[in-house]
């Protein structure tokens, strides 16, 4: 099959970008979307042009490295599918495809389709953990966890941190990402002691990074390759409000520490 591509090219964070047109011919429908970019890049290299930079690693939908806006949709047309798991059979022969990076203030473009997502790491560092140092854990079975809670926690914990939720959101909010981590740990007994300061700390960091607020569009859930539900955002609100209402000074001081 043949495709016409318009790809965002930008030499560096400081330079301006634009869409460039490429014709890709003789493709197999069984090719993955990233293999399409590989093929284009091989050709560009042979022609002495700079290949298209894009992030990827596992190529099986779990590392969260890849992420492209494909015809304006984060990760493209298939539901519950990361860009690397998308195949050309999802496109019509002869189609025109626009490929762009995630667009969000908190995710500056570094080059072409590569963006800086380190803001996510800083949100986790602001409380997205259980504070147990190595060696101090009790026996794993000393604390039973209802299977339904464990399963639900796993639904949230599946987040791959790709940033599609931010890219899809009209406000570029990182609420779904933040809520998934808060929700995962809040469901487990191990997460209780730090539950309130975690919710406050992570939300504060999210704001500080320049992500927008949530106005309940639900685009994040549609784009999420792991189908993480916006119900988690409702849970986050509950924890956040409770934390702010009940222990504002104490929690604020702890977070500042």
């Amino acid at each position: 099959m043949n495709l016409t591509l318009y790809v965002w090219r930008q030499a560096s964070a400081a330079s301006a970008g634009r869409l460039s047109r490429y014709e890709a011919a003789d493709l197999s429908p069984d090719m993955s979307f990233l293999e399409l970019l590989d093929v284009v890049n091989e050709r560009l290299t042979r022609q002495g042009e700079a290949p298209i930079a894009f992030d990827h690693d596992c190529r099986e939908g779990i590392c969260g490295s890849c992420g492209l806006m494909i015809n304006g949709v984060a990760h493209g047309p298939l539901k519950a599918t990361a860009t690397c798991q998308l195949h050309l059979r999802s496109f019509r022969d002869g189609a025109t495809i626009y490929i762009e990076p995630w667009r969000a203030r908190a995710f500056p473009v570094l080059r072409d389709l590569v963006v800086d997502r380190t803001a996510f790491d800083r949100i986790i560092a602001a409380g997205g953990f259980v504070g147990v140092s190595t060696g101090s854990a009790p026996d794993a079975n000393s604390l039973p966890v209802p299977k339904t809670d464990a399963d639900l926690a796993m639904d949230a914990a599946q987040c791959i941190g790709c940033g599609a939720c931010v890219a899809a959101c009209p406000n570029a909010s990182a609420m779904l990402f933040t809520a998934a981590k808060v929700g995962h740990l809040a469901l487990l007994p191990q997460g209780q002691p730090e539950r309130m300061r975690r919710a406050l700390g992570m939300v504060q960091q999210m704001d500080a990074e320049g992500f927008g607020g949530c106005t309940w569009h639900g685009e994040c859930m549609e784009a999420c390759p792991k189908e993480i539900s916006i119900d988690w955002i409702a849970r986050l609100y509950r924890d956040y409000i409770r934390a702010s209402a009940t222990r504002p000074e104490r929690v604020a001081v702890e977070v500042a520490l």
């Binding site: 147990v132 101090s136 854990a137 039973p144 740990l185 997460g191």
Partner: peptide, 22 residues
């Protein structure tokens, strides 16, 4: 054996039985 203890304490959501154990 200590690895599993450590990971559970960190909140790793391992699969569980209905009784709540791993």
């Amino acid at each position: 054996v200590s690895i599993i203890d450590q990971c559970v304490a960190q909140g790793v959501p391992f699969a569980r039985e209905y009784g709540g154990l791993l």
